[in-house]
Nucleic acid binder design. Structure first.
Length: 222
DNA sequence: GGCCAGGACACCA
DNA sequence: TGGTGTCATGGC
């Protein structure tokens, strides 16, 4: 298991708070989380601008769109056929819950996660991002930048689930911490993780994951 | 013109 | 369970 606190505090001290995610509302985060899958934020902004102009990001107005109409609006974000299906299904689910974020947040994180994963187009990373940024619950987002960073720091994990199981958030870790940690990792990743040379020249290159405690039966502990 | 960006999913062995 | 191909756009 890995205690991420030393790394988190070190990055926070060096980089300062990142205040992710850039959005005006929780519904915008939900929509953005789907649109941003495997694309860049510039393309997402183009799609969000189209959607905002047509619907003001109002859920009921979006649900009134036909799928071809929605596809056309979100086309700049890529994979628009898949994303339009996912978007309609997810927004329908929110709408059935009266878009009551507080009520939905009252569920336990694991239950919420299972529910989200059952929705089309919502995988582990998107589900965890929603839990942290929309439902205000702490969990670790083991995205590509996180996996690359932990790999650079000497942890040999390869896939999402493996790293997530290894990183043990302490009970004191708040959802604000989880938001900051993810923001720090991704901001660091954008600048330093593109090649090993840049990472080796970074402030984090000398950091040691000294608190790693290996376990033979991580799966059995969960 | 090729590569990449804050993934998910179907399919196959 | 893990690896691979597919889905698509815009910026550099």
């Amino acid at each position: 298991m890995i205690d991420p606190m030393p790394l988190y505090h070190y990055m926070l001290k060096e980089m300062g708070p990142q205040h992710w995610w850039p959005a005006d509302s929780k519904m915008e985060i939900v929509i953005g989380a789907i649109l941003v899958q495997n694309t860049n934020w510039n393309n997402v902004d183009l799609a969000l601008d189209n959607l905002r102009a047509k619907t003001d990001l109002n859920v009921e107005k979006i649900l009134q769109l036909s799928q071809p109409e929605l596809e056309e609006l979100i086309r700049p974000s890529g994979f628009y056929k898949n994303k339009s299906k996912s978007l309609l299904a997810v927004l329908k689910w929110f709408n059935q819950a009266d878009c009551d974020f507080d009520k939905l947040s009252a569920q336990t994180g694991s239950h919420l996660r299972q529910t989200l994963l059952a929705l089309p187009g919502i995988g582990e990373e998107t589900a965890d991002s929603l839990i942290v940024y929309v439902f205000d619950q702490p969990t670790f987002i083991a995205d590509k930048y996180a996996r690359t960073l932990f790999s650079c720091l000497g942890d040999p994990t390869t896939n999402y689930r493996q790293l997530k199981q290894q990183v043990a958030l302490p009970a004191s870790f708040t959802y604000q911490d989880a938001q900051e940690f993810h923001g720090l990792i991704d901001e660091f990743g954008k600048v330093y993780l593109k090649n090993s040379e840049k990472f080796n020249g970074s402030f984090l290159s000398q950091f040691q994951l000294t608190t790693i405690v290996r376990s033979e039966n991580i799966d059995n502990q969960r």
